[in-house]
């Protein structure tokens, strides 16, 4: 078999998200999402259900855990998780209220 050439090895730039790639982007916004665990279906059922916040978070800094956690060091405060949560368990609050 002939030797594999460089152009056969450098193919697609496929990468996993890496925590903090662009620095601590959590300082970009003063309002942050806060999960109300009394309403969050994952927390209530203690099962890996829903996880819409994890799926839609563009960064992604919401963990797929029970319950989901938000990594505030990197959260840019875009609020998408608030919009997509089917149980209205997430709301935007001032940083001081976290």
């Amino acid at each position: 078999m002939t030797e594999e050439k460089d152009y056969q090895k450098i193919l697609a730039s496929v990468q996993k998200p890496v925590e903090g790639e662009a620095g601590k982007t959590g300082s970009w916004s003063t309002i942050k999402p806060k999960i109300n665990l009394d309403k969050c279906i994952v927390a209530k059922m203690e099962k890996n259900v829903c996880h819409f916040c994890w799926l839609y978070c563009p960064e992604p800094i919401i963990t797929r855990t029970i319950p989901p956690r938000i990594l505030y060091d990197y959260c840019k405060g875009c609020g998408i998780c608030v919009e997509v949560c089917p149980h209205k368990a997430i709301e935007m609050v001032e940083e001081s209220e976290l």
Binding site: Y7, I10, S13, V14, Q15, K16, V18, E21
Partner: peptide
């Protein structure tokens, strides 16, 4: 295999491995 989510102008070297820059991908 993930090293660097942004393809930079330069080659990125990390503990996890080395990622080509944009230039290397386009050359390829």
């Amino acid at each position: 295999k993930g090293v660097c989510p942004v393809t930079t102008p330069h080659v990125v070297k990390r503990e996890e491995g080395t990622a080509p820059g944009y230039y290397e991908f386009r050359y390829s």
